[in-house]
């Protein structure tokens, strides 16, 4: 027998064969026929993490890349495998064991067709979507529409990352107004270097995710911070806040507000000698245990933390590094890990 009828293997054996293939090989196999495509989820593909960057790159499990290319006539390398994908009507070139390119006349249309095809084929969710203003000419409206298409299919997006630079900063208010419809459940990364503070506009989040990570946000005010009360993780880099706003947040936490908060970090210029949460001494050099906390895929730690206590007895480590302009608050939990760090003294 020259051929081996793979679909006539016992169920478990077929599953084992499929499990030996990576996502790109599974995709190629799926192009054989509809019957072949139907067995793909046996490989355990429902657990795949499908993420996309702008409309150019789709990655699976952060390793296997499906690039969306502009139609071209020639192969990139003569040795590469090229075939026509009849199910989604595009040419595909396998450029490496972990990378392939599909070619489209309209990349934006191709991207949407391709990612939803992969999501259906592998029966997995699109877990993460990111867009940067520097590499994408995508408008925020297109981005939001696509986000809504995702949510229409799977109810939520776990991680969303969006960058507003000089090119698309005017779209920021529109994004903020509509961002709650995207139902980001795990982490929202915002890079808003191009967005200016606006005296009369106060930005608030209607449905904040569990983790909120922000970079360069002069528009971010005390009211915005208060709208993140249900967050587990808040990491703010250069927001439009001042020392007393941080003090107020810690006081609110002590009184029982921000009860879901497990970690808070903020980078700004602090006032020397001013207290935060009633503490003047915001470090304890004798505390040599680095407390490490993992929240989803994010790992944070505090060394030399001073202990602060909430009214209900819940404790947290706080640490202000004046020179790094960084304040950290890590709420104690049994799941925290510890690492002993020796004090280095210079004679």
């Amino acid at each position: 027998m020259l051929s081996l009828p793979v679909l006539r293997l016992p169920h478990l054996a077929l599953k084992e064969v499929l499990k030996c293939w990576n996502p790109i090989e599974l995709f190629t196999f799926s192009q054989c026929s509809r019957k072949a495509a139907r067995v793909i989820p046996l490989a355990g593909t429902r657990n795949f993490h499908l993420s996309c960057q702008c409309y150019r790159f789709i990655t699976i499990n952060r390793m296997y890349m499906f690039e969306i290319g502009k139609t071209r006539r020639r192969r990139i390398f003569e040795m590469n495998l090229v075939y026509q994908c009849h199910s989604i009507d595009c040419a595909v070139e396998i450029v490496a064991w972990d990378e392939c390119i599909s070619f489209w006349a309209d990349q934006w249309d191709g991207f949407r067709k391709f990612i939803f095809y992969l999501s259906d084929l592998f029966q997995c969710h699109i877990t993460s979507y990111s867009i940067t203003s520097y590499t994408s000419d995508l408008t925020v409206l297109q981005f939001l529409q696509f986000g809504q298409e995702i949510v229409g299919k799977q109810d939520e997006i776990k991680q969303l990352s969006i960058e507003f630079g000089s090119k698309n900063s005017n779209d920021f208010p529109a994004f903020l107004n509509d961002s709650n419809v995207l139902n980001v459940t795990e982490t929202l990364y915002l890079y808003t270097i191009g967005v200016e503070a606006s005296g009369d506009v106060e930005y608030k989040f209607a449905g904040a995710p569990k983790c909120f990570i922000l970079n360069h946000a002069r528009w971010f005010t005390r009211k915005t911070l208060q709208s993140l009360e249900n967050c587990t993780l808040i990491d703010l880099n250069s927001p439009g806040l001042v020392h007393k706003d941080v003090n107020e947040l810690v006081n609110l936490w002590k009184s029982g507000r921000f009860s879901a908060l497990e970690y808070f970090q903020i980078k700004l210029a602090f006032e020397p000698g001013s207290p935060i949460g009633g503490l003047i001494n915001l470090k304890d050099y004798s505390n040599r245990m680095r407390r490490i906390k993992k929240i989803y895929r994010h790992t944070y730690d505090v060394l030399e933390g001073a202990v602060i206590q909430r009214d209900d007895g819940q404790k947290a480590d706080v640490r202000l590094n004046f020179w790094e302009e960084k304040f950290k608050l890590l709420v104690h939990s049994e799941k925290d890990k510890f690492e002993y760090v020796e004090l280095i003294t210079i004679d």
């Binding site: 051929s3 081996l4 009828p5 793979v6 679909l7 006539r8 293997l9 054996a13 084992e16 064969v17 499929l18 030996c20 293939w21 090989e25 190629t28 196999f29 192009q31 054989c32 026929s33 019957k35 072949a36 495998l81 090229v82 075939y83």
Partner: peptide
């Protein structure tokens, strides 16, 4: 099963159909 999976290396869908006796 790994041996069977290895048969797919470097093959297009049309070639895979022949190797694995898959009707179009």
């Amino acid at each position: 099963c790994k041996k069977v999976a290895n048969m797919a290396q470097g093959k297009t869908p049309a070639q895979l159909r022949r190797v694995y006796l898959l009707p179009s």
